[in-house]
Amino acid sequence: MGNEVSIKAGIVGGAGYTGGELLRLLVNHPHVEIPFVHSKSQAGKPVYEAHKDLLGDTDLCFTDTLQTDVDVLFLCVGHGEAKKVIEAENLPQSIKIIDLSQDFRWSESIKDAAVEAFDRNFVYGLPELQRDQIKQAQNIANPGCFATAIQLALLPLAEQKLVQEEVHVSGITGSTGAGQSFSSTSHYSWRDGNISNYKVLQHQHLNEIRRSLDGLQEQELPSINFVPYRGPFTRGILCTSYLKSDLSIDEVNQMYKSYYRSHPFTIVSDSTPDLKQVINTNKCLLHLDKQGDNLIITSLIDNLLKGASGQAVQNMNLLFGLDETAGLKLKASAF
């Protein structure tokens, strides 16, 4: 597409964490202009008042009017709200939609490729699973953050029909995973120096994880036992998944590196990674280990980027035939 501006992107729900991250990516994207950023709570105010780090980067102001003269619309609203936006605004079918909520993630099978709603088909937007379907899609249901980290840990095994034993997963996430609304468990004085589990064995992302892995493995999947934790930090996810396996560590490493060879953001690390290697990037780092007959897969992502807004931009790039990495060559904080 060359270097000219070619995609008009609108954002609904631009005042929250995912909306802010999306703005940071799109104001620097070589192929995007942003006609409007919608926010009912911040209408009329400059974007940089809500996202102070954008001072000097954009003069955009929030609006409470949703414009339809765009090529793609990002929905960064709460769960249940995306459906209301589409229903209320009667959006033209020509507008591509990328929804970051869970409203359109569910279908009976990943083979169906899409969820139908409001005369639109929403394709599940995990590029490492169905990049070709995303390229042909009109609307995308962006995956959940924990769902992304856990699926990327297990996809190569499921493709080879090797998830034959129940899977145990523990994962910890930063406070931004809970959104910007005030709650007792995201408040600084509660979260700092503290840790707790929540939604043990019943996290909502298990639905999309099982649906994806079932579709790849083409047989009934054993149990996936997931224990999520709230961590005393702002952003990032680290998951440890383990299951019984007869494979040697060399065989597993070869399988994973082969599966992800053509996927620029998922990297198999030979050494144990840490969270700061992925913070502020669209990467997922994987590390594999064997202890006895247990295969252990560690996966790390930034919940706001590869787990949300970064993956949404990755999906936009695929929808419009751009380089998958456009606007996403980001530097990790490192220390």
Rank of each mutant, 00 (worst) to 15 (best):
residue 84 K to A: 15
residue 84 K to G: 07
residue 86 I to E: 13
residue 86 I to S: 08
residue 86 I to D: 08
residue 86 I to M: 14
residue 86 I to K: 08
residue 87 E to H: 12
residue 87 E to R: 14
residue 87 E to A: 15
residue 87 E to L: 13
residue 88 A to K: 09
residue 89 E to P: 01
residue 89 E to D: 11
residue 90 N to T: 03
residue 90 N to F: 03
residue 90 N to P: 01
residue 90 N to A: 10
residue 90 N to H: 10
residue 90 N to Q: 09
residue 91 L to E: 03
residue 91 L to W: 04
residue 91 L to A: 09
residue 91 L to D: 05
residue 91 L to P: 02
residue 92 P to I: 01
residue 92 P to W: 07
residue 92 P to L: 03
residue 92 P to R: 08
residue 92 P to K: 04
residue 92 P to S: 04
residue 93 Q to P: 04
residue 93 Q to T: 06
residue 94 S to P: 02
residue 95 I to V: 05
residue 95 I to N: 08
residue 95 I to F: 06
residue 95 I to S: 04
residue 96 K to P: 00
residue 96 K to G: 02
residue 96 K to M: 05
residue 96 K to A: 13
residue 96 K to L: 04
residue 97 I to G: 03
residue 97 I to P: 02
residue 97 I to V: 09
residue 97 I to W: 06
residue 98 I to D: 01
residue 98 I to P: 00
residue 98 I to W: 03
residue 98 I to M: 04
residue 99 D to Q: 03
residue 99 D to S: 12
residue 99 D to A: 06
residue 99 D to V: 00
residue 100 L to A: 07
residue 100 L to F: 04
residue 100 L to E: 01
residue 101 S to G: 09
residue 101 S to Y: 12
residue 102 Q to T: 06
residue 102 Q to W: 12
residue 102 Q to R: 13
residue 103 D to T: 00
residue 104 F to N: 04
residue 104 F to V: 01
residue 104 F to L: 11
residue 104 F to K: 03
residue 104 F to Q: 02
residue 104 F to T: 00
residue 105 R to C: 15
residue 105 R to Q: 15
residue 105 R to I: 02
residue 105 R to A: 11
residue 106 W to D: 07
residue 106 W to C: 01
residue 107 S to N: 13
residue 107 S to E: 08
residue 108 E to L: 12
residue 109 S to Q: 06
residue 109 S to T: 13
residue 109 S to G: 08
residue 109 S to E: 13
residue 109 S to D: 14
residue 110 I to S: 12
residue 111 K to L: 07
residue 111 K to H: 14
residue 111 K to M: 11
residue 111 K to Q: 14
residue 112 D to Q: 07
residue 112 D to W: 00
residue 112 D to F: 00
residue 114 A to M: 10
residue 114 A to W: 11
residue 115 V to I: 10
residue 115 V to S: 14
residue 115 V to L: 13
residue 115 V to H: 15
residue 116 E to M: 13
residue 116 E to D: 14
residue 116 E to V: 12
residue 117 A to G: 11
residue 117 A to F: 15
residue 117 A to W: 15
